[in-house]
Deep mutational scan, measured.
Amino acid sequence: MTYKAILNGKTLKGETTTEAVDAATAEKVFKQYANDNGVDGEWTYDDATKTFTVTE
């Protein structure tokens, strides 16, 4: 399944996708990606669109 992350960081804005077996696995991948890029904020998840959003 393909999951998407939308990054609304102070220094990084954009989107990325990952293939994962479930939302929990995708969330770990996206949170690591955000952390590696200095983005730390509030996370939300929309199951209907399989989209995570982080906003700083």
Score class of each variant (00 low, 15 high):
residue 45 Y to L: 02
residue 28 K to M: 12
residue 39 V to A: 04
residue 54 V to S: 01
residue 39 V to Q: 03
residue 50 K to H: 12
residue 20 A to W: 02
residue 19 E to D: 11
residue 21 V to A: 12
residue 8 N to F: 10
residue 8 N to T: 06
residue 47 D to E: 14
residue 23 A to S: 10
residue 35 N to E: 14
residue 28 K to F: 07
residue 25 T to I: 07
residue 50 K to T: 02
residue 56 E to A: 07
residue 25 T to R: 06
residue 37 N to D: 02
residue 22 D to C: 05
residue 56 E to S: 07
residue 37 N to P: 01
residue 39 V to H: 03
residue 15 E to N: 06
residue 9 G to V: 09
residue 14 G to T: 14
residue 32 Q to T: 08
residue 50 K to G: 05
residue 3 Y to E: 05
residue 48 A to G: 09
residue 32 Q to G: 06
residue 44 T to S: 12
residue 50 K to M: 10
residue 49 T to V: 05
residue 15 E to P: 03
residue 23 A to W: 13
residue 30 F to G: 00
residue 30 F to Y: 01
residue 55 T to R: 05
residue 26 A to W: 01
residue 38 G to C: 08
residue 5 A to E: 05
residue 39 V to W: 15
residue 28 K to I: 11
residue 46 D to M: 04
residue 40 D to L: 12
residue 14 G to L: 15
residue 43 W to D: 00
residue 7 L to W: 15
residue 7 L to Q: 01
residue 2 T to N: 08
residue 48 A to I: 12
residue 8 N to Y: 10
residue 15 E to G: 06
residue 47 D to M: 09
residue 34 A to C: 12
residue 25 T to F: 08
residue 53 T to I: 09
residue 56 E to Q: 10
residue 45 Y to T: 00
residue 28 K to R: 12
residue 38 G to A: 06
residue 32 Q to Y: 05
residue 16 T to L: 15
residue 39 V to E: 02
residue 6 I to T: 05
residue 27 E to L: 15
residue 42 E to P: 05
residue 24 A to E: 13
residue 36 D to C: 09
residue 27 E to W: 15
residue 7 L to F: 15
residue 38 G to R: 06
residue 26 A to N: 00
residue 22 D to Q: 03
residue 47 D to L: 07
residue 4 K to D: 04
residue 15 E to I: 13
residue 46 D to H: 05
residue 28 K to P: 03
residue 52 F to G: 01
residue 6 I to M: 06
residue 7 L to C: 07
residue 33 Y to M: 08
residue 51 T to I: 06
residue 48 A to S: 11
residue 2 T to F: 11
residue 5 A to V: 15
residue 20 A to G: 03
residue 14 G to I: 15
residue 7 L to T: 03
residue 26 A to S: 01
residue 25 T to Q: 12
residue 13 K to E: 06
residue 5 A to Y: 09
residue 22 D to A: 03
residue 49 T to I: 06
residue 44 T to P: 00
residue 56 E to K: 03
residue 53 T to Y: 13
residue 8 N to A: 07
residue 32 Q to F: 05
residue 12 L to A: 08
residue 20 A to P: 01
residue 40 D to W: 14
residue 34 A to M: 08
residue 8 N to D: 10
residue 24 A to R: 10
residue 7 L to K: 00
residue 29 V to M: 09
residue 54 V to H: 04
residue 10 K to N: 11
residue 52 F to R: 00
residue 6 I to A: 04
residue 12 L to P: 03
residue 13 K to C: 14
residue 34 A to Q: 01
residue 54 V to N: 02
residue 40 D to T: 13
residue 39 V to T: 03
residue 15 E to C: 15
residue 47 D to S: 12
residue 45 Y to K: 00
residue 40 D to I: 14
residue 25 T to G: 08
residue 52 F to D: 01
residue 44 T to L: 08
residue 1 M to T: 15
residue 30 F to D: 01
residue 36 D to L: 11
residue 10 K to V: 13
residue 37 N to Y: 13
residue 42 E to L: 12
residue 6 I to P: 02
residue 28 K to W: 08
residue 1 M to L: 13
residue 51 T to D: 01
residue 22 D to Y: 03
residue 28 K to Q: 11
residue 26 A to C: 01
residue 2 T to G: 06
residue 29 V to C: 08
residue 26 A to F: 01
residue 10 K to Q: 12
residue 23 A to E: 07
residue 13 K to Y: 12
residue 30 F to M: 03
residue 49 T to G: 03
residue 25 T to N: 07
residue 32 Q to A: 09
residue 34 A to D: 00
residue 11 T to V: 11
residue 39 V to D: 01
residue 41 G to F: 05
residue 36 D to R: 09
residue 29 V to S: 05
residue 4 K to A: 05
residue 53 T to H: 09
residue 22 D to S: 07
residue 12 L to N: 08
residue 31 K to E: 04
residue 45 Y to E: 01
residue 16 T to K: 10
residue 36 D to M: 10
residue 40 D to M: 13
residue 35 N to K: 15
residue 37 N to Q: 13
residue 10 K to L: 14
residue 38 G to E: 05
residue 44 T to Q: 09
residue 37 N to C: 14
residue 21 V to F: 12
residue 46 D to V: 05
residue 48 A to P: 07
residue 44 T to M: 09
residue 27 E to Y: 15
residue 12 L to H: 14
residue 56 E to L: 06
residue 5 A to L: 15
residue 2 T to R: 13
residue 24 A to F: 10
residue 37 N to R: 13
residue 42 E to M: 12
residue 44 T to N: 08
residue 12 L to D: 04
residue 10 K to G: 07
residue 1 M to F: 14
residue 7 L to M: 10
residue 53 T to F: 13
residue 44 T to F: 11
residue 29 V to F: 15
residue 7 L to G: 02
residue 26 A to Q: 00
residue 3 Y to N: 04
residue 9 G to S: 09
residue 30 F to C: 00
residue 1 M to G: 12
residue 45 Y to N: 00
residue 31 K to F: 06
residue 47 D to T: 08
residue 50 K to Y: 09
residue 52 F to E: 01
residue 8 N to S: 08
residue 18 T to Y: 11
residue 50 K to P: 01
residue 45 Y to R: 00
residue 41 G to D: 02
residue 38 G to L: 06
residue 29 V to E: 07
residue 41 G to S: 01
residue 19 E to H: 13
residue 38 G to Y: 05
residue 20 A to C: 07
residue 52 F to N: 01
residue 1 M to H: 14
residue 40 D to G: 10
residue 53 T to D: 02
residue 50 K to R: 14
residue 43 W to I: 04
residue 21 V to D: 11
residue 23 A to M: 11
residue 3 Y to Q: 05
residue 43 W to R: 00
residue 55 T to P: 01
residue 34 A to V: 06
residue 32 Q to W: 04
residue 55 T to Y: 08
residue 5 A to F: 15
residue 4 K to P: 04
residue 52 F to V: 01
residue 1 M to D: 14
residue 46 D to N: 10
residue 9 G to R: 02
residue 28 K to A: 13
residue 3 Y to H: 05
residue 2 T to Y: 11
residue 24 A to H: 10
residue 18 T to A: 08
residue 7 L to I: 15
residue 37 N to V: 14
residue 16 T to F: 15
residue 13 K to D: 05
residue 16 T to Y: 15
residue 30 F to A: 00
residue 55 T to Q: 07
residue 26 A to R: 00
residue 1 M to V: 13
residue 18 T to S: 05
residue 21 V to L: 12
residue 1 M to E: 13
residue 39 V to I: 14
residue 42 E to S: 10
residue 52 F to Y: 05
residue 17 T to W: 14
residue 5 A to P: 04
residue 49 T to A: 06
residue 19 E to C: 14
residue 53 T to M: 09
residue 50 K to L: 11
residue 19 E to V: 15
residue 49 T to R: 06
residue 29 V to P: 00
residue 34 A to W: 06
residue 42 E to V: 13
